[in-house]
């Protein structure tokens, strides 16, 4: 459904170069959930927002259902906007505090005018039911709701135009643990019921593992590993992935138990290391790792990794 080729996003904060997303390519098939993990500076959030045209790519192409997003006419752009939506991380800033819930959920419908007025109200009710919110929420304001409920409202809004693809940008990170499960289950149910495709961006590996069919690991703007979920968790190929998994011993999955604690801090994306960006912290680094950048290639069937050691 979605194809990304050589996508790059460079920022220039005060004249320095920040390669937030540096030559990323991948595909997302219809109906699947691609998990995207990475720490600060990985570029995962920027990548997600680029797919929705919130950022314009510096170079590279994004294809949605085989259409190049950059070459669409305004009319076609509007159509694609209906198919691709986003759910944000912070339930406290993702809703306009001055609008009622009804107005918030109705907004996409008003912009796109796909339904006549009387149908719009019904659609709002439908969406509230889908996200298990009481119908009397309509007249209330966001401040009257808890974090978990606000997140549901955000999800209801994202579903208003019946999208096919949703970018979930850390949808549970800001919620209490006991509420996270509610939202995760909701997202799963909706996927089954409505046939949605997700890009699930998160830093909680356990949750990512639970919901994703495949997982991509990013570090400083590059994808360092991409594989089906269980394969990645039991046979990680990239040292960074191994280190990430070591931080979650409760996941207890890997076939070979290597326990890495990385040294040093995450380098700033403003001054990334040469060659393989991970080499400064990699316990297996060789000299050549500081010279040449490894390319993302297929190591096993469907299992891609970017490391010189494979």
């Amino acid at each position: 459904m979605l194809k990304v080729k050589n996508l790059k996003k460079h920022f220039r904060p005060s004249k320095k170069l920040l390669k937030a997303v540096d030559d990323v390519s991948f595909e997302i098939k219809a109906g699947e959930t691609l998990g995207l993990v990475g720490e600060s500076g990985s570029g995962k959030s920027t990548l997600g927002k680029m797919l929705l045209s919130l950022y314009k790519p510096t170079s590279g192409e994004i294809y949605f259902e085989d259409k190049n997003l950059a070459s669409l006419s305004r009319k076609e752009q509007k159509l694609v906007q209906r198919d691709m939506q986003i759910i944000f991380q912070d339930p406290y800033s993702s809703l306009n505090p001055k609008l009622t819930i009804e107005e918030i959920i109705k907004e996409p419908l008003l912009i796109h005018r796909t339904l006549p007025k009387n149908e719009q109200n019904r659609r709002v009710d439908e969406l509230l039911e889908l996200t298990k919110l009481p119908l009397r929420s309509k007249q209330k304001y966001p401040y009257e709701f808890s974090g978990g409920e606000r997140q549901r409202i955000g999800i209801a809004r994202a579903l208003a135009l019946s999208p096919k693809f949703i970018v979930c940008d850390e949808p549970i990170s800001a919620l209490d643990v006991s509420i996270q499960a509610q939202i995760m289950n909701l997202l799963e149910d909706l996927q089954k019921e409505l046939g949605l495709t997700y890009l699930f961006i998160a830093h909680d590996l356990a949750m990512v593992r639970h919901i994703s069919t495949r997982v991509a690991v990013m570090y400083l703007g590059k994808i360092v590993e991409l594989a089906p979920t269980e394969e990645l968790f039991s046979n990680p190929k990239h040292p960074y992935t191994e280190a990430l998994l070591s931080s979650y011993p409760e996941l207890n999955t890997r076939t070979k138990k290597s326990n890495f604690i990385l040294t040093g801090d995450i380098p700033s994306p403003l001054s990334p290391p040469s060659g393989c960006k991970f080499h400064t912290r990699c316990p297996k680094a060789l000299f050549s790792c500081s010279e040449k950048e490894p390319k993302l290639k297929e190591i096993k069937r469907n299992h891609l990794g970017a490391c010189h050691l494979d």
Partner: peptide
Amino acid sequence: DVTIQAQILS
């Protein structure tokens, strides 16, 4: 971040 968290815990 998770990898830094692991360092602090150690």
